[in-house]
Simulated assay, not measured.
Amino acid sequence: MIPNTALTEDRPEEAASGAEAVYAQKALRASPADYFQLLKPRVMSLVVFTGLTGLVVAPVDMHPLLAFVAVLCIALGAGSAGALNMALEGTTDALMRRTRGRPVAAGRVTKQDAMAFGGVLAFLSVSMMWLSVNDLAAGLLALTIVYYVVLYTMILKRRTPQNIVIGGAAGAFPPVIGWAAATGVAPLEAWVLFAIIFLWTPPHSWALALYTTEDYANAGIPMMPVAKGAKSTRLQILLYSLVMAPVACVPILFGMGGISYAVVSVLGGLFFVFLAMRVFLSKAGDHPEGGENSLYDVKKEAVAARNLFAYSILYLTALFAALLLHHAFTGV
């Protein structure tokens, strides 16, 4: 029951305890689905997929059981980072329409429970990887979790519009971890896969930020459109796309992908740049201070940004699927 503020406004201690009681009642309603949501399953699925690709592309046949354990550890590590991120970002998430339904932001899971859940998963994932696979893979997995939770979530996210550029490296580590799990080393080829995801992350994330700018502004997060404006963001999306598309073709030079990968990387990259150009040419947010955007401009930018965001996920998935399938079926 919601406390009666008319009866408690002169008794702050009772008001505080009443609010805590309501929050506790909400937290008691946590379900297994809420804890599953803490893992950020959609993000986890992409992390697991790219990690598995690194493991399969590596020129070593790994024992199936060890490969399963390695992929499981990557999944648990990604889930732990997601849970810890939600625990730390509960207050901020509650201010944003896109994230206010998350378990901690909505009060269904307490911050302490989410922290404990994430901490246990982090310990299990790293220790299992170390004991069952090898120390390099375990070390890279631990670095990824710390990088995302501490460097990105706690330090960079609220301090610089370059948060997603620097912090995005956390999402680029999984194929390197997978490669290291299979071979015990992390050669240049693994870091090429890292570079593809690293360069893909800014245009992917900033496309989302362009049509959720108000959310980030309300939450006080200096994402690029909030800190530098839409025009600067659109330019940087295009520049990163122009660099990322050729880098995505580099695995061809290393013999890491067959004809299918060449087709996906070249044609898919060209279409990525085309969509980035459409975002760049949209005009919302270009008016001087005090000016107004036409409804047409706003809709044009939102549609272009949404299209790029949706396609970027398909593009990265197709790239790594082409690599994975080539090596799975040819064994090369």
Rank of each mutant, 00 (worst) to 15 (best):
Gly54Met: 05
Pro41Asn: 12
Gly167Ile: 04
Lys228Asn: 15
Phe280Pro: 05
Pro225Ser: 12
His63Thr: 07
Pro103Tyr: 01
Met244Cys: 11
Met62Ile: 13
Val279Cys: 13
Leu193Ile: 08
Leu319Glu: 00
Gly90Leu: 02
Leu95His: 09
Pro187Lys: 13
Asp93Thr: 13
Ala276His: 08
Leu188Cys: 04
Thr99Glu: 03
Val150Arg: 00
Gln25Asn: 13
Leu253Gln: 05
Asn293Leu: 06
Leu235Val: 11
Leu324Lys: 03
Asp297Lys: 08
Ser232Val: 12
Val176Lys: 10
Ala15Met: 15
His327Gly: 14
Ala83Leu: 14
Val57Lys: 04
Met128Phe: 08
Thr50Phe: 00
Phe173Ser: 01
Arg100Thr: 12
Pro187Thr: 10
Ile155Met: 08
Arg29Thr: 12
Phe280Glu: 05
Ala169Gly: 14
Ser125Phe: 12
Leu323Ile: 04
Ala248Pro: 00
Ala310Thr: 11
Ala186Asn: 11
Ala170Val: 06
Ala116Gln: 15
His327Met: 15
Pro174Trp: 07
Gly290Ala: 06
Arg306Gln: 15
Gln162Tyr: 10
Pro202Met: 10
Leu235His: 11
Tyr296Leu: 12
Asp61Ala: 12
Met86Tyr: 09
Ala219Cys: 07
Ala137Val: 14
Gly257Gln: 02
Val250Thr: 15
Pro174Tyr: 05
Met115Glu: 13
Gly171Pro: 01
Leu151Gln: 01
Ile74Met: 04
Gly285Gln: 00
Ala276Asn: 11
Leu324Asn: 02
Ile221Ala: 13
Ala6Gly: 04
Ala207Phe: 07
Ala245Asp: 10
Ala190Gly: 09
Val56Thr: 10
Arg159Gly: 14
Gly285Lys: 01
Asn163Tyr: 03
Met86Thr: 06
Ile259Val: 11
Ala83Glu: 10
Val279Asp: 07
Leu121Val: 10
Leu76Ser: 01
Pro187Trp: 08
Leu124Arg: 13
Pro288Asp: 06
Arg108Gly: 00
Ala248His: 01
Leu199Ser: 06
Thr53Cys: 11
Ala87Gly: 14
Ala116Asp: 10
Tyr35His: 05
Ile196Pro: 03
Gly178Lys: 14
Ala142Ile: 03
Asn134Trp: 14
Leu121Ser: 05
Leu84Thr: 09
Leu281Glu: 11
Ala94Ser: 10
Ile221Ser: 11
Val149Met: 00
Tyr211Leu: 11
His287Pro: 07
His326Gln: 13
Leu208Tyr: 04
Lys231Trp: 10
Leu143Asn: 02
Lys283Ile: 03
Lys300Tyr: 14
Lys300Trp: 07
Tyr35Leu: 04
Val298Asn: 13
Tyr152Asn: 06
Arg98Met: 10
Ala310Val: 15
Ala78Lys: 07
Asp93Ala: 05
Trp206Ala: 13
Tyr311Cys: 01
Gly269Trp: 08
Phe320Cys: 11
Asp297Ala: 11
Ala217Phe: 05
Ala6Gln: 08
Ala19Val: 12
